[in-house]
């Protein structure tokens, strides 16, 4: 398909010409390569060890968590998971995971649909005010959320939407994440219009062209959008913190914070075990679909 050139050539590292001329040069080159690998491995180890330690610690007894550098538990226990799952609230973490899912699913679907439609409008049509509207998209990208948050809260409060998922869902149905629209517009601009024009000649209207021609071509980018939205919503903390007040509707992020605040001061392994579970969905999705993430950020640049 024709969208290959829109992606950054991440793996296309052109092999440079061999530069080593003398044996001494080659020797120096080898030392440098060794130093580079050593550095990369050391940095990678320092970065990933805390995560490894977290997983190990979640199977440790509370007395073993502090005071040991190693991550392998001496007396492995599932206590942290068993008791952490129960929580000190009337609900289990199962409920909080379900709530997270209830927030993510509509939000991701709304985002994908609204952003695709809007990006199609920007990339394929000329209309009065297009320049201004596109400039507003870029401005929204740079606009700090902190400045709109309070009136948004007041707005949702007036509508009686507090303590429901509506404030988290609804903006995404109106292409609320400018970044995704921008990314899809860039993607669409790089796709030739031949097929769409052919469809139009055959009598398809612009909406049919969108559904049957553009969306299938846009699919890889839409998957990136859905994945990023999944990840961000999974990690979102401030939104639920502001809008949700009943524990029964808490997502995992809020429930974790709650468990830090309410768990007995020495039941560390429960919190660590639930932290592991909280990270797991994002990690699994990332490893299954990592090329969409890396291509997504290389193509558009992303926060994170």
């Amino acid at each position: 398909m024709s969208n290959v050139e829109t992606r950054m050539p991440l793996s296309a590292v052109a092999p440079a010409k061999p530069m080593a001329h003398s044996r001494a040069d080659r020797r120096a080159e080898q030392v440098q390569t060794f130093v580079r690998y050593a550095l990369l491995i050391a940095v990678g180890f320092v970065m990933l060890y805390p995560l490894l330690w977290l997983v190990g610690a979640s199977f440790k007894t509370n007395s073993e968590i502090f005071g040991s550098i190693g991550f392998i538990p001496e007396a492995p226990t599932l206590d942290g998971y068993r008791k952490g799952w129960e929580t000190s609230t009337p609900y289990t973490f199962g409920r909080f995971f379900w709530n997270t899912f209830l927030i993510i699913l509509p939000k991701t679907i709304f985002t994908a649909i609204s952003c695709a439609v809007v990006a199609y409008g920007f990339a394929r049509f000329e209309f009065p005010g297009k320049k201004v509207l596109f400039a507003s998209l870029i401005a929204t990208l740079l606009l700090p959320n902190v400045v709109t948050r309070i009136p948004q809260y007041i707005l949702f409060r007036e509508m009686g939407w507090l303590d429901s998922y509506l404030p988290l869902w609804v903006p995404s149905a109106f292409a609320g994440d400018a970044f995704f629209v921008f990314m899809l517009v860039q993607f669409l601009r790089a796709i030739p219009r031949d097929m769409e024009e052919a469809a139009r000649v055959d009598g398809a209207n612009s909406f049919q062209t969108l559904i049957y021609i553009v969306v299938p071509m846009l699919l890889p980018a839409l998957i990136s959008v859905a994945l990023f939205q999944f990840m961000w919503t999974m990690n979102d903390f401030l939104g639920p913190l502001i809008y949700l007040s009943s524990v029964e509707s808490f997502p995992v992020s809020l429930a974790l914070k709650l468990s830090i605040d309410t768990t007995e001061a020495f039941d560390w392994n429960r919190i660590l075990a639930m932290s592991v579970l909280a990270l797991l969905p994002a990690l699994i999705v990332f490893f299954i679909a990592q090329r969409y993430f890396i291509e997504g950020i290389s193509a558009g640049g992303v926060k994170g």
Binding site: L10, L40, V43, G44, M47, L48, P50, L51, L54, A57, I65, M231, W232, M234, N235, F237, S253, L256, K257, I260, W268, I271, L272, M274, S275, V276, A278, L279, A282, L283, F286, Q290, F293, I294, G304
Partner: peptide, 23 residues
């Protein structure tokens, strides 16, 4: 390496990582 270094960016926004930091 690119994948390994990118993992924290995926997880870093999570409250779970902030919890880990406390520990």
């Amino acid at each position: 390496f690119r994948t390994a270094y990118y993992v924290p960016s995926i997880l870093g926004g999570s409250i779970a990582v902030a919890v880990l930091w406390r520990y």
